[in-house]
Design a protein around this nucleic acid. Sequence first.
DNA 1: ATGACGTGGAATCCACGA
Length: 260
Amino acid sequence: MKIATFNINGIKARLNALTDWLDEAQPDVVLCQEIKSVDEAFPREPFEDRGYNVETHGQKGFNGVAILSKRPLEDVTRGLPGDDTDEQARWIEATVVGDTHACRLCGLYLPNGNPVPGPKYDYKLDWMKRLEARARDLLADEMPALMGGDYNIIPQAEDAAKPEAWVEDALFRPESRAAYRRILNLGFTEAFRAQTEGPGHYSFWDYQAGAWQRDNGIRIDHFLLTPQAADLMVSCTIDKQVRGREKPSDHVPVVLEIAL
DNA sequence: ATGACGTGGAATCCACGA
């Protein structure tokens, strides 16, 4: 089963780019971030016409996550547990049943957190504490599960073309990276780094200052797998070429192949 | 050294992003 994460930066602006990519890459599941749409306005038809089930968790203007899946999505839940007052749409879960295993899918859009310090950074770190709690529960369930999405975390210096430019940024601050590492250290496998080492692998290039043309990117879109999911992993790749197309998102898809 | 680009929503600019 081919499962992708893709921050599309606006579903209305990216409709053609996304459907073109679906037709070409034929993923079974896509975890989408930054749909920037309320649920009622999400254009379901182009995806349903292609055989995808659509589950959204949107809000007006910003954020918003969705799952597209060719197989039925069961037990869908919306919102990251742990704070009933949190109104930002950044988390959605569902279970997909494969040929041999079921897998819990968690799609996430982790807060950016800039500027540092400030309330937005506090929110990021608070959100990551809640993420850690949910991650612990997923491990305790001892079933294949994954958390995929835009983590807004540059895990290591090698994950940025110019790491020195990010040292004061919420995506690369020691506190951010430590919070991410705490989750990894619970027993998760970061899918891309399980197979590929070294610098030069990015999933985001800013629209500004010719970042794409200069390959000035960062790797911030990740899949974290429970041990039961990691045992089924086949490959994890970044579909870099998508960034060079017409009217692209500033992120590209990361694609996980897993033997479900 | 600075700014640069894009999206959505409201409104002819602003918030937000990374």
